[in-house]
Design a protein around this nucleic acid. Structure first.
Length: 464
RNA sequence: UCCUCGAUAGCUCAAUGGUAGAGCAUCCGGCUGUUAACCGGAGGGUUGUAGGUUCGAAUCCUACUCGGGGAGCCA
């Protein structure tokens, strides 16, 4: 008797053929007939379930086993054999089926198609479905591939803080972190809330980005990356926004925008290639049931050289397109979603870096170009998802940086440490932020961010 | 936050002003290789909530709640 797992069995079935094995997992479906029955058993190690055949003649407690409902857990002892005339080549002929835990009749996951909306309401059970088993295995593999990509290139992984005091990054609304009594906070003599008596003796919030801290480490280790949770308290009601999501933020020193884009392109191709190779069953499932163009699009991505276009040129292309946009493209305005989609899906038909945006529509830390009108920023637009990456070369001239901060009403005193980085050996450097969930949407074809996060947190929704 | 669509059995959906139904799931029975098995039977409903119109409301009106899609903000 050998304890084993479905993944091992299906990787090398000949090795296990006719051998006594033991396997434990959950029942996906159970069909019994007069003399025998079939369990579809999934043990979580493999996308596919394995079929278990049990016979009335040889199984002592056949009536009980034949009534086991989907969701029940069992241990099966038997031999691996080829399945006659069956859809799957291998099955287990059970000698013994031991119920480990039975699921009552109100188990919500049926062997049928469920809507994603319903499954979100049972997020604790949805990883037992084909779709979510595939999504979350791919999520795990993609996370590993990202670490591997950076580690193999000598990048140092930085754990940037989750709680921060910098309120000046301009990356959206923040969640306040406090231990004060909301009904009766300490107050100053003028009646204002006195944050100096809060836990950290100042106003603090959950991080909206690890970039500024990553820059500090890039100016010591030369190549670093962060990979962690990020929090935005924005009232965004879309399929692409969550209040809690994960970001990858590489930062490289002695490098500019060109190197930044090369890094982003290599990273995306590496991870997509890894997932395609490591999760063929999951990717086949997405291609068949989620997005029938997925495989072709990802294969093209691996082959294609990502396009590069300046913001100024992109505006020209949009203006000359003859398209009837809801918003007329004009220089100085941010690109609308419809413009981004048109560029990546129609004009280039592949991922495209848009570079050198007007300074007025980008953040204070981005390097001012010699033309004085644009900054060395880039957004990577991809078909289907839109903006996947936002990056830039960082402003490394202290006087220009400080001037930009004053322009945008950011108090330089609050970010004195950030200005120090320019003061002491602050070479040119660049970086970008990749929204991990948006990347997963792109890889899997799943079109709602709530379905690529195990337990999603969005506006007015924080269950589980 | 704005625009738009929706909410009926555990799930997916019918019923468009006149007796709330089907498929799946569940339960019972049948079936000698099933695989979204099949065949027969049974149970299962305050039609999202609160008001209103009407002889009569799942259906029409108002508000609210929740959800989908789109926009803005962004990753």
């Amino acid at each position: 008797m050998e304890k084993t797992e479905v993944k091992q069995l299906l990787q090398d079935p000949e090795h296990y053929r006719d051998r006594e094995i033991e396997i434990s997992g959950w029942v996906r479906s159970n069909r019994d007939q007069k003399a025998f029955g079939f369990l579809a058993l999934n043990d979580g190690t493999h996308f596919h379930s394995i079929q278990v055949v049990y016979e009335r003649e040889t199984l002592a407690d056949y009536p009980r086993i034949s009534r086991l409902r989907a969701g029940s857990a069992v241990t099966v002892r038997g031999v691996l054999a080829t399945a006659p005339g069956a859809r799957q080549p291998w099955e287990i002929k059970a000698r013994e089926v031991i119920p480990e835990a039975e699921a009552p009749e109100d188990y919500p996951i049926q062997p049928k198609r469920h809507t994603r909306e319903f499954l979100r309401e049972v997020a604790h059970l949805r990883p037992r479905t084909n779709l979510f088993a595939a999504v979350f295995r791919v999520r795990s593999l993609a996370a590993f591939a990202l670490h591997r990509f950076f580690q193999e290139r000598g990048f140092v992984h930085v754990h940037t803080p989750i709680i921060t005091a910098s309120d000046a990054e301009g990356a959206g609304e923040t969640f306040r972190v406090t231990t004060m009594d909301p009904l009766d906070p300490p107050r100053t003599h003028r009646g204002e809330v006195d944050y100096s008596r809060d836990f950290f003796a100042r106003k603090t919030n959950l991080t909206v980005s690890g970039q500024l801290e990553a820059e500090a480490f890039a100016l010591a280790f030369k190549k670093v990356y962060t990979f962690g949770p990020t929090f935005r308290a924005e009232n965004s009601n879309t399929s692409r926004h969550a209040a809690e999501f994960w970001m990858i933020e590489p930062e490289i020193a002695f490098a500019g925008l060109e190197e930044d884009m090369e890094l982003a392109e290599a990273m995306i191709k590496d991870v997509v290639g890894y997932v395609l190779a490591q999760a063929p069953d999951e990717m086949n499932f997405f291609n068949e049931f989620v997005d029938t163009g997925l495989r072709e699009r990802l294969q093209q991505l691996l082959q294609a050289r990502f396009a590069r276009v300046t913001y100024t040129r992109a505006i020209e292309l949009l203006q000359q397109s003859g398209q009837d946009f809801s918003y007329t493209p004009s220089w100085g305005q941010d690109l609308q979603s419809e413009h981004e989609r048109y560029l990546t899906e129609q004009v280039f038909q592949k991922p495209v870096f848009v570079t050198d945006y007007p300074r007025e529509i980008k953040a204070f830390y981005m390097k001012l170009n010699p033309d004085g009108r644009t900054v060395a920023a880039t957004d990577l637009l991809v078909p289907g998802v839109g903006e996947l990456i936002g990056g830039s070369q960082r402003e490394d001239r202290p006087e220009v940086l400080e001037e930009r901060m004053r322009e945008l009403n950011i108090d330089p005193a609050e970010l004195d440490w950030y200005l120090d980085l320019r003061k002491y050996g602050g070479v040119r450097h660049a970086g970008f932020g990749l929204g991990f969930e948006r990347f997963l949407m792109y890889i899997t074809g799943v079109n709602n961010i709530r379905d690529v996060i195990p337990f999603p947190r969005t506006v007015r929704s924080c269950h589980f």
